[in-house]
Amino acid sequence: MAQHKVNYTQDGGLPVALTSIDKIVNWGRSNSIWALTYGLACCGIEMMASGASRFDFDRYGTIFRASPRQADVMIVAGTLTKKHAEFIKRLYDQMTEPRWVISMGSCANTGGMFNTYATVQGCDRIIPVDLYLPGCAPRPETLQYGVMLLQKKIRANSASKAQKPKRLM
C-alpha cells in the first residue's frame, strides 16, 4: 500500500497546497488538452506519429478524440481544400468553448506549395487560429513544442473570467 508521506510541519501542518481557483483550472485545462483528429493530408501522418510510440503524446495529456464535442484543440494537419472548407467550419462550430486551433504545416498556414485553384490559402480564412507551426511536414517535435506553447498560452489567460469568443471578423 502506498505510504503517504506528509510533512505536517510544513505548510501550516495541513496536507494541502494552497492555490487560486484560476491556477487550478488553468492547470487542469492546460494539462489535458484533448485534440480532435483532423489529419487531412501528409501532416496528419506526422500527427499520428506524435501520438505513437516514440513521441508519445500522452505525456502531455493530449489524447486524440474523434468527436469535436469532446475536444479542446483542433489540430488542422494538412491541406485544406475548397471542397473540404465547409466541414472544418462545421466541426469548429461543434467544439465547446474554450477551444483552440493549431494550424500544422505550411498548407494549413498559407496554402503552402499548393498555390492552386483547389486549395484554401490558409485555414485562417475560415476559422481563427491560435498557433501556426511551420514546416512541410513539421516534425513531431514541432507539434510537441507547439502544444507546450499552447499550454503556456492557456496558463497566461484568466480562467475565471468569461473568455471572449474568438472571431474571425
Partner: peptide, 23 residues
C-alpha cells in the same frame, strides 16, 4: 472523393520537370 484534390496535374503543367519532383 475529392476532399484532398490539390490540383497536382495542373501544377505539373506549370512547372519545369525538376520543380515537380517535390510535389
Amino acid at each position: 472523393v475529392g476532399y484532398l484534390h490539390r490540383g497536382m496535374e495542373k501544377m505539373a503543367e506549370n512547372m519545369i520537370y525538376n520543380e515537380f519532383m517535390p510535389t
